[in-house]
């Protein structure tokens, strides 16, 4: 399989943009400049980047508590995201939502929410809307392995299959449901098989290989557009940071009980390093070219943090705005 230069560079830029902003949050979280709960997705960038790279602007996505990557990959504004994590008026949710409520309807990012499984049926509904209207839009639901314990997932899989709705269920399986290893919440690690009894196509893929994610997502979205959805993609990955915040152990609660050797093993599978290796060895990119991309993204991220810090907090007088439309 060969990939266009533009696609490769876009994937790289998206993943870097996510990683650099995630890592940028670490310091301000630790020094309490940022107070809202922040669930960093460092290490999981390939899934958001790969899936969203095959979506059109008017396709829909919904995220969960760990959705900085989904929002950015779908085209949500970086400045507005960083400002939202800082809970400023200029944030994408005007400081009313914080890190867990990112939204940008102008690019089809219809929202994210930390009620585990809570947005799966919302994505189902967005897919239903496309189906009712007869457009070729597709909806993507991003959720984690923890959400497989929720009944709403089974309900949504059934209804999506029943009506052949254009929805891609993307399960980011990072092997931990907050602190709990997957083996303690499920009898089987094969999450993708949940879709099979409903007659849905289900695949397990290496979620740290952005090109694999891209290929599967492309196929899945095409099927959906042709009325042959839904598709279930289980993407194996690992979070490099804590469940919430930079690292539960660094933050002093010592609640991250993942074995050190396991963490180390997964750090070696870092999706960005893997893509860099591919770009240099097979993609025809030079080290200099990659450095140029890095420098540009780094500048962009640093400007977004400046923007957030200089932005005002919401005014007290506006407490009761936006209760009703």
């Amino acid at each position: 399989m060969t990939y266009s230069r533009k696609l490769l560079q876009d994937l790289y830029a998206t993943m870097l943009r996510i990683r650099m902003s995630e890592e940028g949050f670490v310091e301000p979280i630790l020094n309490r400049e940022i107070r809202c709960p922040v669930h960093l997705c460092s290490g999981e960038e390939a899934i958001a980047a790969g899936v969203c790279s095959v979506l059109e602007k008017d396709d829909y996505i919904f995220g969960n508590h760990r959705s900085h990557g989904h929002y950015l990959a779908k085209g949500g504004g970086l400045k507005e995201m960083v400002a939202e994590v800082f809970c400023r008026e200029t944030g994408c949710s005007r400081g009313r939502g914080g890190s867990m409520h990112l939204i940008d309807p102008s690019c089809g990012m219809l929202g994210s929410a930390p009620i585990v499984g809570g947005t799966i049926s919302l994505a189902l509904g967005a897919a239903m809307a496309a189906w009712v209207r007869g457009t070729r839009q597709v909806a993507v639901s991003f959720f984690g392995d923890g959400a497989t314990g929720e009944g709403t997932l089974a309900e949504s899989l059934n209804f999506a299959a029943l009506k052949k709705l254009p929805i891609v269920f993307v399960c980011e399986n990072n092997l931990y449901s907050t602190h709990l290893c997957i083996d303690e919440i499920r009898v089987s690690r094969n999450i993708y098989k949940m879709a099979l009894p409903f007659g849905e196509k289900g695949h397990r893929i290496d979620g740290n290989d952005v090109l694999k994610v891209y290929e599967h997502a492309k196929q899945a979205v095409e099927l959906c557009r042709n009325g042959e959805g839904p598709v279930f993609l289980e993407c194996l990955t690992y979070r490099q940071r804590g469940h919430v915040g930079p690292d539960d152990n660094v933050q002093g609660t010592h609640t991250d009980i993942r074995p050190a050797a396991e963490v180390k093993r997964w750090l070696k599978k870092d999706p960005i390093k893997r893509l860099e290796k591919y770009l240099l060895q097979q993609g025809g990119f030079t080290a200099e070219e990659l450095q140029k991309v890095q420098a540009a993204i780094s500048r962009e991220v640093s400007e977004a943090f400046d923007f957030a810090r200089q932005s005002p907090f919401p005014a007290k007088e506006d407490l009761s705005s936006y209760v009703f439309a």
């Binding site: 219809l110 049926s121 967005a126 239903m128 949504s156």
Partner: peptide, 28 residues
């Protein structure tokens, strides 16, 4: 049958689907 949908007994997801459809511009 696309605008008048009798559903499985799945109140949670069916209500969520209505809410999601509303977010995507429908008036369910």
């Amino acid at each position: 049958e696309r605008r008048v949908i009798d559903t499985p007994v799945s109140e949670n997801a069916m209500t969520g689907a209505a809410v999601g459809a509303a977010l995507a511009g429908m008036r369910p």
